[in-house]
Design a protein around this nucleic acid. Structure first.
Lengths: 245, 245
DNA sequence: CCGCCTCAAATTGCATACAAAGAGGCAGAT
DNA sequence: ATCTGCCTCTTTGTATGCAATTTGAGGCGG
């Protein structure tokens, strides 16, 4: 899977509850798979990540098939892929549900995310091409402005571009994908992230230390700053208390 | 997926070319899914990892279905999961093949593996329970003996137990799974690893530095030693030169 | 009164039939 | 002779029907 395949910043679907598969017509060069299973996978992943489908929700194959006007076959394939990606859990003959990791598991995922993001930041400090460093600074500046404007929605969007830029800066697509995948899997549990506006400015200040270290080529500093950032961010989250059977 | 689900050390299938799905009757507590798709997934993953199915080999759905005496449906589901796990690549209407990453991609995967293993080793140095440390030392000792005996087959098996023990020592299942998954994905390209027996002793010496650091609780030392080990190991591999379309 | 066993309903797993999309070959034109 | 366009054939994608398994409820026995 490429970085852009993951459903992190899929265009807002609005509030249309039309039970129709939304065409994912992006201008990407390699026109993607146009199979129903693939569209379903993206659609369902999007809904899970955006919280439309809450963790623990049942994913009845027949229901979903009816909802999207397809047969159960592509639904099953989409669900299988979502299981493999970690967004969905299923047991044989017992149905599938949106993944609902235990608190311990979530803690592990956050720790992994901190380490992976720190790794990316450190590698970026060493290797990021000058042009990309400038772009990173531009995004960082954009975030500064947005932190004043106080638009959590838009801040969240640009914030993801910021982190993605650092993943790419690692110059290692495999690590970048792992990191993004982890971010995506944690996403459903960080819905309330930028609710309080004070967080925006704090976040920007933390970012600043990361950016400065990367610009300096300070590998250890960038990694440490990013690790600290993620750990602080983690503290702000409302981790849904989930009980596990 | 749990650590044990991954097909790293699946019991030898021998040379029986019987086209019958082998029952995976392990004594694990939670009896696994017994669906044909799941058995196929394990079987195919095993064959890919063991090199029976070489990178680039075509995976014809109908052929596989005939070979295992099942319909195409479970075959398709197994293939989809393998695609998601990275062992198989497929394009719509064009079939699936055993993943054949480019040299650049393989290099990325090795770097990721080095970093992940180093992370695990560092965390293990900090957190590993005393009992598990003793088990690690026991495995390490076992490897020492095997490095004299000069049995590459068995050495490889115990070597995996060694690394798995360190993954587990991180006390972070998510990171452990990522690391193992990466190791599995690289596996098809490191077949010739322990061909020359001199490598066994060298490998044990490198392990020794890792173990000593972990026992000391020396996080940075353990990480550095493991990173060095993986990078040395990487140098020994014959990376299949693959051309990419 | 509690627990176990049996049975039925619902849901997933699998098989088969059909549709659609690429790939390759052949023919005709340049 | 070569290139291009069409046609066919192979392979994958989808739909639908049937089989198998789980699970809950109800009855029977202790």
């Amino acid at each position: 899977m490429s970085l852009d395949d993951l459903p992190t910043r899929i265009p807002q679907a609005g509030l249309e509850s039309e039970p129709v598969v939304r065409r994912v017509d992006r201008a990407s060069p390699q026109a993607d798979k146009v199979t129903r299973a693939e569209e379903l996978r993206l659609q369902l992943a999007d809904e899970i990540v955006r919280g439309v489908l809450a963790p623990g929700s049942g994913l009845d194959e027949t229901d979903i098939a009816r909802r999207f006007s397809v047969s159960r076959t592509p639904v099953r394939e989409a669900l299988r892929q979502l299981v493999a990606s970690g967004l969905v859990e299923s047991r044989a003959h017992r149905g599938a549900v949106v993944a609902q990791p235990s608190i311990e598991r979530l803690t592990e995922m956050f720790e992994a995310m901190a380490e992976l993001e720190a790794l990316c930041a450190g590698l970026a400090a060493e290797r990021m091409p000058a042009a990309d460093r400038q772009k990173l600074e531009a995004i960082h500046e954009e975030l500064r402005v947005l932190s004043y404007a106080g638009n959590p929605e838009r801040f969240h969007e640009v914030n993801e571009r910021f982190h993605n830029a650092i993943y790419a800066g690692s110059q290692n697509g495999y690590i970048a994908e792992m990191t993004l995948a982890t971010r995506v899997r944690v996403q459903p549990f960080r819905r309330a992230q930028f609710r309080n506006l004070g967080r925006l400015a704090k976040s920007h200040a933390e970012h600043d230390r990361v950016v400065v270290a990367i610009m300096r080529g300070d590998k250890a500093g960038a990694a440490a700053a990013m690790r600290a950032h993620i750990e602080l961010v983690r503290g702000e989250y409302e981790l849904y208390a989930v009980s596990h059977p």
